[in-house]
């Protein structure tokens, strides 16, 4: 990095703006980023959506295509309407081209010509399965992120992915490969994990079930939420002595319907980091689930 004598084809102005990150990931990585098209599909106006969009926009991709599907309003910081969001994103980095579409059909089209596809919400896009399949066919990286109350997760399906890793002894870059489990093998048609065994995946499944539960009955939600949290903690070794009080359970149930801003920022940060790794081909990508728990402030990685 920096000593390989490689000439930049980025403009002087871009080199000045991206200086600090070029020092971290190298000019070649920045170059690759500047040829990438990232499609963001689903709740682009959620806080998690906004966090991710901001992060990849700052990183300096070539273009960001926002496909709003089953979107929310008034939860993010980039603006209420899609136009406001577009203007804010454009404002953050004018080297990035920003496009906005609404609905699933547009999304299906845009996915085919993209470098990476980022879904916001497992349940936001009914056609998620077919998007996942066209990503597999096209060799396009698929990412899905979700924040539910005090928890959040990012899932990655990068197909058969090779990446460069620095050899600890020689410092040379060596190529490594991860064969990802496909989205279709991991999730059912409703976007819920099929047979989760790891604690984060189990919790994610339960959270998604609770979220899709249209019941207004707080008691019912409370019980479901409690089961999910207890199950997760039992598997991560937090059990026995620590019973969740009735009050805690209620608080979880209430939180399950909202986004907690710092949680979205943390999950959006890890999400952005993984998308950047994918676009630059540097560093080992996560395989294949990141799960964040704001009660304990811990973020775990597991393979679903």
């Amino acid at each position: 990095m920096g000593t390989d004598g490689e000439a930049l084809t980025l403009s002087t102005e871009e080199a000045a703006v991206y200086d600090r990150q070029i020092r971290l990931w190298g000019a070649d990585a920045q170059q690759r980023m500047s040829t990438s098209r990232v499609v963001v599909v689903g709740r682009v106006r959620s806080n998690l959506g906004n966090e991710l969009i901001k992060n990849i926009c700052l990183a300096g991709v070539s273009s960001i295509i926002l496909c709003s599907v089953n979107d929310v309003e008034g939860q993010g910081f980039l603006g209420d309407s899609l136009d406001e969001v577009r203007n804010s994103v454009q404002d953050i980095n004018r080297f990035v081209k920003v496009d906005i579409f609404e609905g699933e059909e547009a999304a299906a089209n845009e996915v085919k010509s993209s470098t990476a596809v980022c879904l916001i919400g497992f349940d936001s896009v009914p056609s998620i399965m077919s998007i996942a399949k066209s990503c597999r066919q096209g060799g396009i990286g698929l990412f899905v992120g979700e924040c539910i109350g005090l928890f959040g997760a990012v899932f990655l399906d990068l197909g058969v992915r090779s990446y460069a890793e620095e050899d600890k002894d020689s410092g040379r870059l060596i190529e490594k490969v991860i064969d990802y489990t496909s989205y279709a093998d991991t999730f059912d048609d409703m976007g819920v994990p099929k047979a989760p065994t790891a604690p984060g995946a189990i919790a994610l499944g339960e959270m998604l079930r609770i979220k899709s539960n249209s019941s207004e009955d707080v008691e019912e939600l409370t019980v479901a939420y409690a089961r999910a949290v207890a199950e997760m903690y039992e598997r991560t070794g937090v059990n026995g002595k620590q019973r969740l009080s009735e009050q805690h359970l209620r608080s979880f149930a209430h939180a399950a319907r909202t986004e907690v801003p710092p949680v979205s920022a943390i999950v959006g940060g890890i999400y952005g980091r993984e998308v950047i790794k994918y676009l630059t081909g540097k560093d080992e990508p996560l395989n294949n689930l990141f799960f964040f728990d704001a009660i304990r402030s811990t973020g775990i990685v597991e393979c679903m």
Partner: peptide, 22 residues
Amino acid sequence: NIIHAIATTNAIVAALIVLETI
């Protein structure tokens, strides 16, 4: 002595500060 700085790490750190602040 330039410290490498990127948006994603800053975003995560800032959010962890807010969790502790709350």
